[in-house]
């Protein structure tokens, strides 16, 4: 890796991206030949050392973005820098330091699991053939496939294929791992295993760029997140800030829900929902102290059983951002 890093450093000096960002895009746009605008003016900044969740429903442009980052397709306009170098021009210096799983694993069905890894490792001109065996065995161990490594890949289950794809991404020590929906199609146990592997890798200092259409996945493993919808970036930042950015819900439990709703509305609460003895509303904007609302309710003769603010989840943030549920885009 030594001279590759040096080359990367040189390119960095020439192009001058923002320091600290492992991935950085400016106005990145892709219109497919069919005329489909898949990614629209994307400005992404992935901090070094983060586990960065790239969240969006199916068809929102996640895979398209990743293809551009990896130099597989050319952007229609805009630029992308990965590890400080302009892509796709710097593919040869950047990609040996990047492990990628793009839109599911793809294997040679007629080769064994081990044979597949040997093939992908041979394709990297920066990989020393003298240590190839060791690298391959290491990667197989890491994903728990050592026992099945001699079987033909066509006999693998989807979960095993996914792991072998991950093993290929882990052949070298990487500065960046790009994982496009790595838990797609896995059972809950497989999902847990992959997520724990991602956490381990992050703990070793690898920046992980993880795309997903599953909110809870992002909430569980990511430090940062960006939210995509219909090819556009809605928001990005640390997960804690994103969730905090969405206002929580005010919830009142009372035997007098009608009065409670009226009084809350008089005090400017919006988004009122009454379900049985429970009244909820969007939390009041910054200026209002929730305790004052409670006092107002009591003054108005409402018998309050419970009063509180429910913490917002990333899902609330998403719904607030898009004004819609987390469904497949058209």
């Amino acid at each position: 890796m030594t001279d590759t890093a040096a080359e990367a450093g040189e390119t960095e000096a020439e192009t001058g991206p923002v320091p600290g960002s492992v991935i950085e895009t400016r106005g990145l746009t892709k219109r497919y030949r069919g005329g489909q605008l898949a990614v629209d003016g994307l400005d992404l900044a992935v901090p070094a050392g983060s586990v960065f969740g790239f969240l969006g429903p199916n068809g929102s442009g996640k895979t398209t973005t990743i293809r551009m980052l990896m130099g597989l397709i050319a952007p229609t306009s805009g630029t992308a820098h990965v590890l400080g170098c302009r892509m796709p021009a710097a593919s040869r210096t950047v990609l040996p330091q990047v492990g990628a799983l793009i839109e599911g694993p793809a294997l040679y069905p007629f080769l064994t699991g081990r044979g597949n890894l040997v093939r992908f490792d041979s394709a990297d001109p920066a990989a020393d053939p003298r240590t190839r065996r060791a690298r391959v065995e290491n990667a197989l161990d890491r994903v728990g496939l050592a026992a099945a490594a001699g079987k033909k890949a066509r006999t693998y289950s989807l979960g095993m294929k996914q792991r072998l794809g991950l093993a290929a991404a882990l052949l070298q020590p990487r500065g960046l791992l790009v994982l496009d929906e790595p838990t797609n199609g896995l059972d809950p146990q497989g999902m847990r295993e992959i997520r724990s592997l991602v956490r381990d890798l992050a703990a070793e200092g690898t920046t992980v760029f993880l795309s997903s259409h599953l909110l809870d996945e992002i909430e569980q493993v990511c430090t940062h997140a960006a939210v995509m919808a219909r090819g556009r970036l809605l928001v990005q930042g640390p997960v804690a800030e994103l969730a905090a950015g969405a206002r929580g819900r005010l919830a009142v439990t009372t035997p007098d829900p009608g009065d409670a709703a009226r009084i809350l509305a008089e005090h400017g609460a919006t988004g009122l929902v009454t379900e049985g003895d429970r009244v909820s509303a969007d939390a009041p904007p910054g200026g209002t102290e929730p305790a004052d609302l409670n006092a107002a309710l009591v003054r108005g003769g409402v018998r309050v059983r419970a009063f509180g603010i429910e913490r917002a989840s990333l899902e609330d943030a998403f719904v607030a951002l898009t004004g819609e549920g987390f469904d497949v885009a058209g």
């Binding site: 593919s91 990609l95 793009i102 599911g104 793809a106 992908f120 394709a123 290929a168």
Partner: peptide, 18 residues
């Protein structure tokens, strides 16, 4: 069609070399 081309290219095999 097998999808392996994308993994060869990100390895990176290099298009001319491949």
């Amino acid at each position: 069609s097998g999808g392996t081309l994308r993994y060869l290219l990100v390895a990176p095999a290099g298009r001319t070399r491949l």
